[in-house]
Amino acid sequence: MSHTTRVLRSEWTKIRSVRSTLWTLATALAVTVGLSAVICVFTASEFDSMSTGSKLTFDPTYTSFAGMSLGQLAMIAFGVLVVSGEYSTGMIRSSLSAVPQRGTFLACKTVVAGGLVLVVGMVTSFVTFFVGQALLGEHGASIGDTGVLRAVFGGGLYMALIALFAMGVTFVLRSPLLAFAILMPFFFLISNILGSVSATKKVAQYLPDQAGNTVTSVVPEALDRPYGPWGGLLIMVAWTAAALLAGWFVLKKRDA
């Protein structure tokens, strides 16, 4: 068995042996599906009273992912816990003693955690879509409609990327309290506030969450952005890559 394979197995053992990390993934699925379902029910009941303009730009696919704004917080919590557990328990010293190649250590942790959140993100995205469209009824969309399958796959990718972004930030901060104190308020409040204020809206649309979730949009008129769905996801990829690169730099330069 190669050294890298052993490190990958070790990282998988760490993740599945900590209940809190697995519970956060289950919470991400439940919250996203549940909140999206509630929003779709209310949307369907109020659809006839909507303005003509709102009806013309109505995006049933994007609406079915409305709960993702809250479900992503659980994905962020997963990313924080996967990394911060190393530091809060002091396990980081043992981990780096066993794997002195710090780039290999970070890469293996990212691959294992990333694969897991990708699977959970895809399951969450598909379940959320089908439940949402069923509740929207005649106002819903079909998986075969133009752009819909891309949006559903994109939703799963977005949820995986947000968790990896949180991992990179936590490698930089090295503290669960600090990571939660910065990431949770930012994505739950600050980003939304900046996106709703005209003076900061043009800047806010390039933030990771606001750019990334455009991939779940099918109707271009529903979102006023200077980039398309894939462009938004690429911005999110760039944020994630920058966070992981910063995490690697800190991990390499600082003692455990």
Rank of each mutant, 00 (worst) to 15 (best):
S2D: 10
R6D: 12
R9S: 11
W12L: 15
I15Q: 03
R16C: 05
S17I: 03
V18Y: 03
V18P: 02
S20P: 02
T21R: 02
W23E: 08
W23V: 08
T32F: 05
V33H: 14
G34I: 14
A44W: 14
E46P: 06
S49E: 15
P60G: 06
A77W: 08
G79M: 07
V82R: 03
V83W: 00
Y87W: 02
I92K: 05
S94C: 00
S95R: 01
S95L: 02
A98F: 02
V99T: 15
F105G: 04
L106D: 06
A113T: 10
A113P: 05
G114H: 05
G115T: 02
G115R: 04
M122T: 13
F126I: 06
G132I: 00
L135N: 08
A141T: 14
D145R: 03
M159I: 04
A163C: 10
A166T: 07
S175I: 04
A179Y: 09
F180V: 09
F180T: 05
A181S: 08
I182P: 00
F186R: 06
N192Q: 15
I193P: 12
S196W: 12
S196Y: 12
D209R: 12
A211P: 05
N213C: 12
V218Y: 06
G231W: 13
L234Q: 15
W239Q: 15
V250E: 01
